[in-house]
């Protein structure tokens, strides 16, 4: 079920006062109020002219600075936020329609930043069951969903289901929160910085978990600050800057634009950045996108002949 963004614009100011402001602009006052962006308190537009489609089964990465509109963008995907301009279509149907939006809620699972902060129930079981119960499922179905949700995040149902979620470690709490969303059996999983604040071990485990979920056929949209993670996991990457779409394409295509990304204060993955600098200093390195292994292999190929020649020379002497 593709999610299509059609010329979406969003503003924090309610449409009425926006009209008032627009009139003022027409009268020649407050003209400077336009064109202010990002974290500026006077900012009017959080998103502007955004068009793209989340395709079935893809892994889409979203990156951009704090205040670039990432969080606002993904909250359009399950109808939590409605565009001020343009349309968001889920499976070809406009989400402005309440019946469509209600259906989308269960097909599009949204995991917020620090999802463990939203845990509330007395037991892990009750917390995970919250979503399925809201869907009006029977007790048996709810039970099946809870078991399924917990097992898909790698937690042991027997061991944990009667515990209080607040007794668990931070990493486990986050898994429970994940399970609560997965128990609704969404088709699309939207993640807002799912590994923020985790230590390296937990971070790696979580990314592996997300990768596994995607491989089972789930469409995944992930917001992240880590270009390395995006390059490794995503089919496509969407880069936002000041509420607009800056780049959209495969990691190869996006991270070839090191200069453009730098101009808006974003980096490219470390191996790619090093490869680009080395290219400027006389290495050929002609792949589109480098990871550590690829870079090591190409560097070794390039350096081996001249090193061999040097050893030969040294041998002759």
């Amino acid at each position: 079920m593709p999610i299509e963004f059609d010329q979406v614009g969003y503003t924090y100011i309610d449409p009425k006062s926006r009209k008032r402001k627009a009139r003022r602009v027409e009268r020649g006052q407050g003209a400077s109020e336009r064109g202010k962006w990002g974290t500026d308190p006077d900012a009017i537009w959080a998103l502007r002219e955004i068009s793209f489609t989340v395709e079935d089964g893809e892994f889409l990465g979203v990156c951009g600075h704090t205040g670039s509109g990432k969080s606002t963008l993904i909250q359009h995907m399950n109808g939590l936020v409605h565009p001020a301009e343009g349309r968001v279509l889920f499976d070809g149907k406009d989400m402005a329609d309440k019946a469509v939006a209600a259906r989308v809620r269960t097909s599009c699972g949204m995991v917020f930043q620090y999802p463990e902060h939203q845990l509330f129930a007395e037991t892990v079981y009750e917390d995970v069951a919250f979503g399925p119960r809201n869907m009006g499922l029977s007790a048996d179905d709810v039970d099946a969903r809870v078991r399924e949700g917990l097992s898909s995040v790698g937690l042991d149902f027997e061991e944990l289901h009667e515990k209080s979620p607040f007794e668990l470690s931070g990493g486990q709490q986050r898994r429970v929160a994940f399970a609560g969303v997965l128990a609704m059996r969404p088709k699309v999983l939207v993640l807002d910085e799912p590994v923020a604040g985790l230590d390296p071990k937990a971070r790696r485990e979580f990314l592996a978990l997300i990768k596994g979920l995607h491989e089972t056929g789930l469409t995944v949209v992930m917001v992240s600050h880590s270009m390395e993670d995006l390059a490794e996991l995503c089919d496509r990457v969407l880069v936002l800057s000041e509420g607009r779409r800056l780049l959209l394409g495969t990691p190869d295509e996006v991270f070839a634009n090191a200069e453009l990304l730098k101009s808006v204060g974003l980096a490219v993955p470390a191996p790619q950045a090093l490869a680009l600098r080395l290219r400027e200093r006389g290495f050929s390195l002609n792949r589109g996108l480098y990871d550590v292994e690829g870079l090591a292999a190409d560097l070794a190929d390039e350096l081996a002949p001249c090193l061999a020649a040097r050893f030969e020379e040294a041998g002759k002497r």
């Binding site: 909250q75 939590l80 809201n134």
Partner: peptide
Amino acid sequence: YRAQVSRGATFTANPFKGGVRSLLALMIP
């Protein structure tokens, strides 16, 4: 609020039919 709405919570519905649980889901966090 948005997170719990994403999980299908309704805050306007009948308080005797899941409404209380939804309210708890809001207040306890």
